[in-house]
Write a protein that binds this DNA or RNA. Structure first.
Lengths: 206, 206
DNA sequence: TAAAATTTTGACCAAAATGTTAGAACAAAA
DNA sequence: TTTTGTTCTAACATTTTGGTCAAAATTTTA
């Protein structure tokens, strides 16, 4: 809020920018609000970062990484399926508990400019085709071996992601509808970490 | 696009407004774009509807109803649990297939102004407390009777909603990551209607 | 401590977006 | 066909917002 802390302005600005951009999205974010949040003059934003779009791109990139890199590297191991699922669930819930605005931010901004996804995806060396292919193979194999019921890899993956991500994406709705305050919401998500895992395993074990 | 069809302008404008607002959200929506989409002059928007905000509220209300009313009335019956689940899933997938932008729109706009949710909720007589209470009771009962495994009502409800809604909310991401075109996406969602139901039932049957 | 470099700001500018209005075009009624 | 009322538009006004710049304040360095 106040600048008093002797943190270098550049970093201080980026922090404020992150808050405001993730809270409001690009279109509704105001340079004024970012400046105020950082406790500095608006012109200073332009001194450190050329313009709104440049700032936004920096923020988007870090958020994008935060959202995708983890799951990507988990999927790319050759651990057994159940273990992967466990890791994805715990990882997602943990990350999103720390950054609850993340999914909504990514979702809306990608919807507004889908080309970003491809662009940044390439930039950080994500290859969806390959990741998906590996996961599909693994699921198919376990199906054939009778370890899990018949299910498409991508449907399973989508189920996992849905169960983890949706409550955060829709957090303001969920909180109101289920009449939870911040604390109970967080508690519920903590319970969910184990709950979802059980739910999925139960659903796919023959 | 063109106005040629002799439809009354008022309705025509609302249609365009709906498209643009759901596509871009309030902040990124441009009056100009709405006018162009309707094939009319920008000033006419103000002739029929006072200003941007008034227009937006009308759109938001209809979208809000579309999103919530169905599930509300399904939950408010006293059918058996599995039947309810089946109905919710099919209903959600059907509605969202017709209005794929709906969840993202509601989610982002509610996040931007959470008071809307309460306001419009009351306006259309939705009582979350009561709805949730009924569902909780029902789940608890089935748990006690040993018909389903131990699970919290709200967790189950959240799972159901997550599995249905998330793929649409994150549609642009899902499409890109899983390399699907519009058609395959829709097909996948159709398969999902049955798939999710099986998944949930399997997960909660003892 | 004086000079040089840097950070920071207030004042201003330009562009973009919303909103207003006088009157043209059109339709309906007399 | 004139008159009256409604629908629509072009041009204008206003507001909001992002961005620039010269100079003040501060820090660094000589």
């Amino acid at each position: 809020m106040t600048k008093s802390d002797s943190k270098p302005s550049e970093e201080l600005i980026l922090n404020s920018a992150m808050k405001v951009f993730t809270r409001r999205g690009f279109a509704a974010a105001r340079m004024e609000e970012i400046a105020k949040e950082a406790g500095i003059n608006r012109a200073l934003l332009h001194y450190y970062f050329r313009d709104k779009e440049t700032m936004f791109n920096l923020i988007f990139e870090t958020q994008f990484k935060e959202f995708f890199s983890g799951i990507g590297s988990i999927l790319n191991t050759n651990k057994p399926l159940f273990e992967k699922i466990k890791e994805i669930v715990t990882h997602e819930i943990d990350v999103l508990s720390r950054h609850p605005d993340l999914p909504r931010f990514i979702i809306t901004e990608v919807a507004l400019q889908p080309e970003r996804l491809i662009q940044y995806g390439q930039k950080m060396g994500i290859n969806p085709r390959q990741i998906l292919e590996v996961f599909n193979q693994q699921v198919e194999q376990e199906v054939r071996q009778g370890k899990i019921i018949q299910i498409e890899g991508r449907q399973l993956l989508m189920n996992i992601m849905s169960l983890c991500v949706y409550p955060f994406a829709a957090k303001p709705i969920v909180k109101t509808m289920m009449q939870m305050d911040e604390k109970t919401f967080n508690q519920m998500m903590m319970n969910r970490r184990e709950g979802i895992y059980q739910f999925i395993i139960k659903a796919i074990t023959p």
